[in-house]
Design a protein around this nucleic acid. Structure first.
Lengths: 165, 165
DNA sequence: CTTGACTCTGGAGTTGCTACAGGGTTTCCA
DNA sequence: TGGAAACCCTGTAGCAACTCCAGAGTCAAG
């Protein structure tokens, strides 16, 4: 089948499939005379696997590792368990952070119930003189990601680091 | 004061301060003879404000709006409230998603309690033939971001979209 | 006068895509 | 047979919020 069909069958955008190929998650597809990629059931399975992992919010690097195990069925799968445990920890950490964050935001929101002048806005004042810590090793330290992103549908990711010494 | 001191006092990396200037969140700093940036208390306050907002996981665009209100103290702050409410919704949505995700991951983890050969690994098999839906409008739809990111310390963000029709 | 700490600019890299532009191929229908 | 629509190709740039680097200049101390 051609890339469009594969895309449809797995619910993956065409661009994304080509991207996975570039990234080495999918093997280079064979080509027709006219230079179109052609795929078979093996590709389809592999892509479905990848997508299932992505829907569980794994990174491409994590998925690479899992694919590696799939390709070597005789090795122990202990590391699969380890990887998954780590991933679960990340998610749990992030949940904890966000709950914390939600609490802070709700507290902040309480500062200004009714519409006033900005000068008297409890929220702006609070943010200006902050009971909320200014910087600290606050948000993350733990490998996790943020709250919202630009586009419409299906947003999943972003990153930031932060140096200190 | 110079940029290094400002950095230290606010717990912000130097590069980030310069980045905020480029982005227009901080005004262009005055310069010394030797072309070093110099800052005063006003800059410090503004940067602290920005960092407090960032620690609440707001985007730079959201912060831009808040700064705007800070700079026009006579206008109504209603929109501040609205913005914060929207932000709170984003966070709440993301929490819901992650809890859902955590449940799925724990279920998956149950599939393989002990170390076996990868061929018999319940997790790999489950991911291969998935009770977890393959694609679907699963993860987000709602403006939010993901679970973990590459670097060491202080990770905050990432993004992804997903086209369908 | 040298060393080292600090600063400058500009550009590339991060993640996982998405969205073109500018072209070629296939297929269908009149 | 011919022409348009629908599909495919490559390559490049963009997103968010930084981070990191190279190559250079500045400044204070010894």
């Amino acid at each position: 089948m051609k890339i469009g069909q594969l895309a449809q069958q797995t619910g993956t955008p065409v661009d994304t499939i080509r991207y996975y190929e570039r990234e080495g998650l999918l093997p280079r597809a064979a080509r027709t005379e006219g230079n179109y990629r052609i795929y078979d059931a093996v590709h389809l399975e592999r892509l479905a696997f990848i997508r299932r992992c992505r829907s569980l919010d794994m990174t491409l690097d994590e998925i690479r590792v899992l694919l590696c195990f799939r390709d070597r069925p005789l090795e122990s799968c202990e590391d699969v368990n380890t990887l998954l445990d780590a991933h679960i920890d990340h998610v749990a950490d992030r949940i904890r952070e966000l709950l914390q964050l939600e609490k802070q935001l709700l507290t902040l929101r309480e500062c200004c119930r009714d519409g006033r002048q900005a000068a008297d806005c409890g929220i702006l004042n609070e943010l200006s003189h902050g009971a909320t810590e200014v910087a600290g090793p606050s948000v993350s330290e733990s490998h996790l990601a943020a709250t919202h992103a630009g586009g419409r549908r299906h947003v999943i990711q972003r990153k930031q680091k932060h140096g200190e010494d």
